[in-house]
């Protein structure tokens, strides 16, 4: 007699183990891991039986990324997702080192939605700031000479204020 497998059980069977660079193990559903184009390709060619090493991503970053992938594999309403994304980013951007690592990992794992979300958030961090504030926040060396900087400042032709 054939066993009847419910949809839920079927899903459960499709679990995959991912191993971070610092040997932390994460067991997630295949559809969650599939959000990464790179992991999807690995699963397609090597299967899901043995653990997949994600050597360039540390445990704390991989954990956060998988949290994102899980939420985004549920197909929830757009407003719900937008709110969730915002909270997720608000938390991430507090720690700049973490934020950079998250950005690099999302690129490396090729999760386009997350790449875009982080880029938009990053661009938001550059708005409404003076050049000096931007340099300080991102540790950028100012190699403009006084004259060059002055030139940029004085040729700003667009004025926002009414005459």
């Amino acid at each position: 007699m054939a066993t009847i497998i419910t949809k839920e059980q079927q899903e459960k069977e499709k679990m995959v183990t991912l191993v971070s660079s610092d040997s932390e193990k994460f067991v997630v559903e295949q559809k969650v891991a599939e959000k990464s184009h790179v992991i999807k390709m690995v699963m397609n060619c090597c299967g899901i039986e043995s653990p997949i090493p994600v050597r360039r991503v540390k445990g704390d970053i991989l954990k956060s990324i998988l949290e994102y992938c899980e939420k985004h594999s549920k197909g929830e309403a757009q407003e719900v997702m937008e709110k969730w994304d915002k909270e997720y980013m608000d938390k991430a951007e507090k720690d700049l080192v973490f934020f950079h690592d998250l950005m690099l990992a999302s690129h490396f794992l090729h999760i386009q939605e997350l790449v875009d979300l982080i880029a938009v958030t990053f661009a938001g961090m550059l708005k409404m700031k003076s050049p000096e504030e931007i340099r300080q926040k991102f540790n950028i060396n100012n190699d403009l000479t006084k004259e060059q900087e002055e030139h940029i400042m004085t040729t700003f032709g667009w004025a926002f204020q009414p005459i």
């Binding site: 990053f122 340099r135 950028i140 190699d143 403009l144 926002f160």
Partner: peptide, 15 residues
């Protein structure tokens, strides 16, 4: 992705 209105400002960050 920074909106155009901020471009004059970010021009002055570095060369």
């Amino acid at each position: 992705r920074v909106p155009h209105r901020f471009h004059p400002v970010i021009c002055a960050v570095s060369r």
